[in-house]
Structure formats: C-alpha cells, structure tokens
Computed example of a mutant assay.
Amino acid sequence: MVRLVDQAGPIRWRLCRLAGWPVVLLLAGLGTACIPQARAPMPSETGDAGWAAYQCDGQTVRARAGEDQAELVLDGRAKSLPRVRSASGARYAATQPPRIEFWNKGDQAVLVVADETRECRRLDGPARPFSARGHEPGWALALAEGRLTLDWQYGEKTLARPLGPFKATRRGWRYAETTGHGDLTLALDETICHDSATGVPHPMTVDIVVGDTRLQGCGGRPENLLSGPPWRVEDLNERGVIDRSMLTLEFATDGTLAGLAGCNRYHGAYAVTGEGLSTGSFAATRKACAPALMNQEARFLETLQAVVRFSFSETGALVLETAQGNRILARR
C-alpha cells in the first residue's frame, strides 16, 4: 500500500465508486475526496454525435447530415458532400466526379453512386443475432431476441437483461446502461479483428466495460467479410495473372463458393471453422481455351481447393492461403 503524508499526518486511502467507476477516496484529517482514476477512453466515445447508419441494398452506409454538408462513410472511405437544393428532405451531392448523392428523408434515404440508385433504410443497431468473445479473461456476448447476455471471468459472472437502444457512431455502434454490476458500455467498431487464440478475422472489434472490468475481443460472423460483391483475383501464387483473364471468387451466405476460373465457371462449397477456412472440391464447365489459360485455371482451382485460412492485407486485399504457403490475392 502506498502511504501519502502531509503536514497533518498520514493520508489514508481506499477504493470507492463514483458513477460506476473505481475512484480513490482520500481521508486527510476530517476532509474526504473521491478522485476518479484515469482510464483510457472507449473507442468511438468522443466526436460521434449525430451519426446514423443505413442499409442501402445490402451495403451499410454511415452518414452525419448537417445544415451545410453531410459526412458519408462509404466502403470504409469518408466523403464530404455539400448540401444542394431539393424539393423535400435534405439532399447532398459531390461537386466533382465520381457522382455521389445522398438524399436524407429521416428513416429512409436514397444513395446514388455513379448511375446506380439504392434505396436505404435506417438501422437501429448491429444485425442480430450478434455474438462476440474474447480471452484472458474469457468472456462471451450475445445479442438476440431483444436481450443482451454477457458472461465473463470464464462464466463466473453473468449479466442478462432486455436490450436497450444503440447509438450509431462513425465506425460502428455504442450502447450504455446501468446494471447491477455497475455501468455497462459496449463499443462495436466495424474494423477487422483477429481472434487472439485462432487468428480468424471477424468484422467487428468489440470493447466492453462492465463495472471496473474491461473486456476486449472480436465479434460478428467471419463469413460476412467474404460474402457480398465478387472478389477479383490479382495474384496467384506470387506469379500474377494473365492479362485480361478473369478469375473471381463469389462467397454466398449459404456456403456456396463460385466464380470464373479464367476459362470456365466453377462452383463448390466453403466453410469458416474455428481454425480458419476450408473448401471442398470444385466442379467446372468444360469449355476449352488457350493452353496458357487452361494451365492457369488448373493452378487456380488446385490452390483454391487447398485453402486453410484467410486474412486481409493492410490495403484491404483478401488473402487465401494454403498450408504450403501458396496464396490467392483478390480485391473488390
């Protein structure tokens, strides 16, 4: 124990709580004072007022609309759009190519990218059911059917209660309420998180504070990082790909993996496991092409069938890797 001394004698201290946070209580003579202990700020804790999240034909878009301009986060990139005249609602549009427009109408919105128009609806939180977990100490979070369940300290402590409202942030979601275990705060950020035990990537980084305990880990379904628009292969086993040849990867939510192999179309299955990514054998059409294309196609399918893990490069490229170290690199 640290002993503090002033002219009146030793200063005694103990831990107390103030608004759910651990504090130091100083006892000096007849005076007392609660002094909050310093803590690191929660992710997305400051500068995130006014954000809203929308689902625009399968794509999540975040927007903060102001009187003169709107901030838009689209495909992980931030855009600033000035406000333009509109008959109804608040409309914002880029002044230079590429064409981007966002027309805010409360719980509904319209997003225009190039010549594609997407109808949007406002979201009230992360897609449910949602689960997250972390290690050392072990914990697990589940959001489903209007309830929040949190186990921590390897199951020794449990919290279960009705789920309240979320607030959107620039990068994800924030949730806060007071519980019997103290103040509870969840920060769910849409940044790729690698499980500290398995290395498997997840779509969300999760930071939880419950009482005076902080829990950090990963959340969301890893499959969500793969599914969506097709991936186009840029490199095969560090040998590039033949100019103007088309190799693609289309991960469906039902576990189907299909695409173009350079000459023929292929289809098969994939699964994200606790240890990584597994694929089965692939069937393909039987069209004949130039020998170079056929050789590349054979190497591509052979490598794809041997994939055991996936990750993402610093620039956002998808990397599929075999146990022998062969790699497929693809981008959207």
Rank of each mutant, 00 (worst) to 15 (best):
L225A: 12
C263N: 02
R12K: 07
T179Q: 04
A298G: 07
T285V: 09
G262A: 02
K167Q: 08
G50D: 10
V113Q: 07
C193E: 05
S86A: 15
P137R: 12
D115W: 10
S86C: 14
K105Q: 13
G20K: 04
D68W: 04
H135N: 13
R64K: 11
T322K: 04
A258P: 00
S313E: 12
Q324S: 15
L143V: 09
R14H: 02
W139C: 06
N295G: 00
V200Y: 08
N237L: 12
C263P: 02
A261Q: 01
D207P: 01
A63Q: 08
G228V: 15
R170Y: 05
C56H: 07
L215A: 05
E67F: 12
L293D: 02
V307M: 09
A52I: 05
L247H: 02
A176N: 06
L226C: 09
Q108V: 07
T205S: 11
P203G: 04
V307F: 01
G66M: 07
P230K: 12
V5A: 07
G172I: 06
R332V: 11
A52P: 01
R332S: 14
S281I: 10
T117V: 15
K157L: 11
V241K: 04
G76P: 06
A269D: 15
L320F: 04
C263H: 00
Y270S: 01
A142E: 11
